[in-house]
Design a binder for these strands. Structure first.
Lengths: 127, 127, 127, 127
DNA sequence: GTGGTCTAGACCACG
DNA sequence: GTGGTCTAGACCACC
């Protein structure tokens, strides 16, 4: 499981882990009911305090992304539609909203943004 | 000078202020050598502690965006060429790029993003 | 860690602390990756407000002298080669040079300075 | 009268002026009972607030370096011996003392300082 | 436990 | 009037 932690960029480590595990799940690189590495193993791998991993797992469990079986480990939960389509769209929407806010202060019009988005879209489709 | 502070989104107030003043400068809404509001005035306007404004101003000064004259006030520094309108478009572009990256990991297509951007654009124009 | 603060000589406390910690690092009395005292501990030791220490540490971090690990403490950064024993002699040399310049303007001869330095040297050795 | 002010190096302007006028007097570039420029003239020349010049003159007068004649101007006072030898030596002495303090923290011995001073002394005599 | 942010308010230095 | 420093103490995030 490839996870990259940057120790010094200000983003809390446990949030970096949560985000990257979410991405691994959504992109199907870890499939449903597959086992995640034990807390201590992952902690050792990432050179991070085990408490930090534990916190990431705990919050992922509360949010329904993973589940724990007593005595046997931690596993990826079946992806419910609400976790994918709905909440994911909301996440993107709020990012878009912040782009508009930022643009307003930089004297960039909504029309320009749409244009830039379409340009970017073409770049993406080529890759 | 329009600055919006959100007290509850977790981003430190002084960083919000720094970012927005940078934007005002880059977009030429505050011109070179123009005086910024005094610390205490801005503090009162934003309903924030003067120390918080002072910290934002101090860090902007260290970074070379503004300069202070002892006893007489705070002023916008001459803009270095790196920070023109062009590079400020780049700022937005990189934000848009990260939206696409995030969307890809979340299984949201470029077409969907364009749609969402257009919806948001309509909301903006109504305000 | 020996740090001396003079409360009344007009030099801001946080600058005194910054300077002295730099000296301790350059002279290898605190070695690379060694932990500095926690903010609150040093504050208590120097009978100074924790915020004042925090400011000194923050500026030292920005300047690259120390680094912080979230939740676990503050540590001495690896020393860049510019800051070896050699350049720290240069620091003293430039101070001595400025003594001579000042003396010249005050009609005090180099011979007199040497005499005064030797006197001072004797005082130091007695302490 | 040549006086150089640096607006942005942190040293108060009035102190820069005081120091430079003292040096002009000690080095006999302005002789006893010679008239200094009026406050407003000097203020205009240095592009500085007249209050700042006034403060410098006031403190120089209190210290006995200059004197004012009502209605006719400001003049250089006769240099008393206490103003030259005694206080000047004290000034140098305190500078030397601070060199030793600084050196102690940098692991530089008094013996090394004496050596460095003697080296510097030779450089000075050549110029 | 660690450091980070923020507030409220005092006092000082500068122009 | 301006900004700068410092204190006292609260609350939060992270490990």
């Amino acid at each position: 499981m490839k996870i990259n932690i940057s120790q010094r960029d200000g983003i809390p480590i446990y949030l970096q882990i949560i985000q990257q595990i979410k991405n691994l799940i959504v992109s199907k690189r870890i499939v449903e009911n597959h086992e995640l590495p034990p807390i201590r193993v992952l902690a050792e791998q990432l050179i991070v305090n085990p408490n930090t991993i534990a916190r990431a797992y705990r919050e992922l469990e509360v949010a329904g992304w993973i589940y724990k079986k007593r005595g046997s480990g931690t596993f990826v939960a079946p992806i419910s539609d609400e976790l994918t389509q709905q909440t994911c769209q909301q996440q993107i929407r709020s990012q878009i909203e912040s782009v508009f806010k930022q643009a307003e202060q930089l004297n960039i019009s909504p029309a320009q943004i749409i244009e830039m988005v379409q340009q970017q879209s073409k770049l993406e489709s080529k890759e």
